[in-house]
Design a protein around this nucleic acid. Structure first.
Length: 492
RNA sequence: GUCCCCAUCGUCUAGCCAGGUCCAGGACACCGGCCUUUCACGCCGGCAGCACCGGUUCAAAUCCGGUUGGGGACGCCA
């Protein structure tokens, strides 16, 4: 069997968004699964909207996600001559023709058609121009476009889409579409097909919005005498209002880099995206890289569009809850060493990274990360909610202060006493610390919980967290004592 | 206006092709309980759906037709 070759062809007109990432992921998975290749092709023929930064941004995002490609990036703009040459061949072989209609004429006709409520297809004015007339117009320098000559008189284009099944499109429903502009530049529909032929693409896996283009592109393949690849169109990703997600209306929320910045683990994000519109019969949801590749199949892609459940302005979820929950799952269950680099990155970004966390304090660092991770959702939480573990400069949550400290006047006196007693412990263990705290509570006739919660807030700034005695060990005797002494000032 | 695609809990979906085992399963979210010094985790339980109408059939989420709804494409954008 011939080698599978898929491609991901983003146009560099902005960052990589989740729709594009999903397309890239599916192409990548299929290539990996079949032992084939993924080709990265930058479709940069729209010079005005394309930019170097976008190319880099897309590549960065793909790298972050861990989507590797085998060839490229190729740049479509380098092959324009090839595209035009292909169009010439189509003209010579009678599969395409030159059209001298002006844009103004066409606009006028289109407007009329709209008014009369008839189809707005090209009417074929130049389809059968006698050769003399073509020569005459060309000699006069009349600009022309090249249109594909769609077969007339019954019949249809048909192909079997791997996801949608057999698709048939009547010739009469396809107009003679333009493949080369009057300025000599090729159009996407042509360039894309010609590039796919040159790159030997065997499987075109793309968004369902390409479905309508497919019959046209098949006509191009056939006209060029090239083998037609297999097509697999995937459902689109919609927003909660069922509108196509777009950079314009959703901004950063749909940008891959946004998820990197907000503390997603890249594989968790890939896992989530793979689940948007794809599933296995056993409804499994968590996959390692190897498992996903093993489980992937194009047949598992759903035909119905999926909604990316972004919740703008939701205080609890800054994006699709399912995405967060998958990230949370990985954050809790991966070996700590695997999340270590991502936590490090966040602490660095927050300016509280200490190189010793990677050196002499590494064991402590990993244990601490492990201790607190079960209540975090994204890696940025380590630098915000978990700041007190890694830095002495941490904020006290006002709510926690009120509830756990200020409400209990007695703490003003107990904190220094506790500090002294904790300091006096020779080998600072959770058990020892617990004993000291419980005895102190008893001595002053106060519930241990009051002391425990008060200390927690003083030492971590939070209302909640891991079991206090483990916290004390993680924070360390010296720092605990310091923080308790300092806590007295909260009453001023 | 024309053409194409789609339709199961709030969301992602399994089941549909090969009708009965489905008074529809899982996950997230939500609610309740257990655990607990707090918050999580974990465990247990709950809420919630086959868009509608008709047909075929002993039997339909599954097959057929229609309606409605949603999406996409109709550019000398990619």
């Amino acid at each position: 069997m011939e080698e599978v070759r898929t491609r991901f062809p983003p146009s560099p007109t902005g960052y990589l968004h989740i729709g594009g990432a999903r397309t890239a992921i599916f192409n990548w998975l299929f290539a990996q699964k079949t032992g084939g290749k993924l080709i990265l092709r930058i479709e940069d023929t729209d010079a005005e909207r394309s930019s170097e930064e976008s190319v880099q941004g897309i590549i960065d995002s793909m790298k972050w996600l861990g989507i590797t490609w085998d060839e490229g990036p190729y740049f479509q703009s380098r092959f324009i001559n090839e595209h035009v040459a292909a169009a010439q061949r189509l003209v010579e072989s009678g599969h395409a023709y030159k059209c001298f209609c002006t844009k103004e004429d066409l606009d006028r006709k289109r407007k009329e058609a709209r008014k009369k409520k008839t189809a707005l297809q090209y009417d074929g004015t130049c389809r059968n121009l006698p050769p003399e007339e073509i020569a005459k117009k060309e000699a006069a320098g009349t600009p022309y476009t090249i249109r594909l000559k769609v077969p007339r008189g019954g019949g249809f284009v048909s192909f079997e889409d791997i996801v949608y099944g057999i698709i048939e499109k009547k010739y009469e429903d396809i107009e003679d579409f333009v493949i080369v502009r009057s300025n000599g530049r090729p159009l996407y529909i042509l360039s894309n097909a010609v590039d796919d032929i040159r790159d030997g693409i065997t499987h075109v896996i793309r968004g369902q919005d390409g479905l309508a283009n497919t019959p046209k592109q098949i006509l191009i393949y056939k006209g060029l005498g090239a083998p037609v690849p297999k097509f697999a169109h995937m459902s689109l990703t919609l927003d909660p209002k069922k509108a196509k997600i777009s950079k314009r209306t959703h901004g950063e929320l749909v940008a891959v880099h946004f998820y990197k910045e907000r503390g997603f683990l890249p594989w968790a994000f890939v896992n989530y995206l793979a689940l948007l519109g794809w599933s296995t019969p056993d409804s499994r949801e968590i996959f390692s890289r190897e498992e996903l590749i093993e489980a992937f199949s194009l047949e598992g892609i759903s035909r119905a569009n999926a909604i990316f459940d972004i919740r703008k302005d939701d205080p609890k979820f800054f994006t699709d809850p399912k995405a967060i929950s998958i990230n949370t799952h990985y954050l809790r269950n991966l070996p700590v060493e695997e999340i270590e680099p991502y936590v490090r990155e966040q602490l660095k970004k927050a300016g509280i990274w200490d190189p010793e966390f990677q050196g002499i304090k590494r064991d402590w660092f990993l244990r601490t990360v492990d201790l607190i991770r079960s209540r975090y959702h994204v890696t940025t939480d380590f630098a915000t909610l978990g700041r007190a573990y890694f830095s002495d400069d941490y904020p006290i949550d006002p709510k926690a202060l009120k509830k756990n400290i200020l409400r209990h006047e007695g703490l003003k006196e107990w904190f220094p006493i506790l500090a002294d007693r904790l300091q006096a412990i020779e080998t600072f263990t959770a058990e020892e610390a617990e004993q000291v705290i419980r005895e102190t509570a008893e001595e002053f006739g106060v519930k241990a919980g009051i002391l425990i919660n008060g200390i927690r807030t003083a030492v971590t700034g939070q209302v909640a967290g891991p079991g206090l005695f483990d916290v004390l060990i993680a924070v360390g005797q010296r720092r605990v004592v310091e923080r308790l002494h300092k806590a007295v000032t909260f009453f001023e």
